[in-house]
Design a protein around this nucleic acid. Structure first.
Lengths: 112, 112
DNA sequence: TTTAATGGTTTAAAATAATAAACCAAGAAA
DNA sequence: TTTCTTGGTTTATTATTTTAAACCATTAAA
């Protein structure tokens, strides 16, 4: 399998992650989760509703997408769920590696 | 302006770029443009129609989006337009810097 | 000066995604 | 047990994207 074919696969796999973090509504959720002044133990859905101005079903929907790409994680305490940014940056690192590969290909092409 | 506020702005600005490269149809265009065995002098719209299996208006539409985020550039020769990946990686580098910042914030939060 | 080739644009239709309302389930508190 | 809180899910609607058809403009070739 050629390097370009591998890159193509990596690119396709990154698609879901890129779309997930590209949406501005989801970005506002990510930003809220980054703000430790509020978080500390994680944010509840209702907190995110307040901060983002989105409805509860919308927050729930977007959180599901962010959970699916392993960017967000949560911990349950009774009926309460506390959401936080996943400590593992696997997807972020994969994307960084992909961007490096693309830059490399462009650089090589330029030298031809 | 706090670091987080700056990050928020950077994030929002990256949104268009993330959505642009997140789409699988556009990724297939990017991949085709990366393949120097075909390119050399750049690819024409009709070449991209063949490679991607998309219609001409669709290719034209997606190329416009990729041009708008400065990922794709082109050169005209008569009626022919030759498309290629922009040699400047400004947007890619901006995104890499953003991802680094996000990773940094997550790391800091973890240590609290 | 016709005619053919290339490709961008506009518009209407189709596909997809996002949203809110209504509902359901589980745990905590009364 | 009953009631309240928290929050996930399903469905129908709305909004957004994507697409193709039809059209127009430009340049090259005949």
């Amino acid at each position: 399998m050629s390097d370009l074919t591998k890159l193509k696969h990596e690119f396709a796999k990154s698609s879901i992650f890129l779309v997930a973090i590209g949406d501005e509504k989801r970005q506002s959720i990510i930003i809220a989760l980054m703000d430790q002044k509020i978080i500390r133990r994680g944010l509840q859905v209702t907190d995110l509703v307040d901060v983002t101005g989105l409805s509860r079903p919308a927050v729930s929907h977007h959180l599901k997408i962010l959970k699916d790409v392993s960017l967000v994680d949560y911990r349950s305490e009774g009926t309460k769920n506390f959401y936080y940014l996943s400590h593992e940056n696997k997807e972020i690192n994969k994307l960084k590696a992909l961007l490096d590969d693309v830059t490399e290909v462009i650089k090589c092409n330029r030298q031809l």
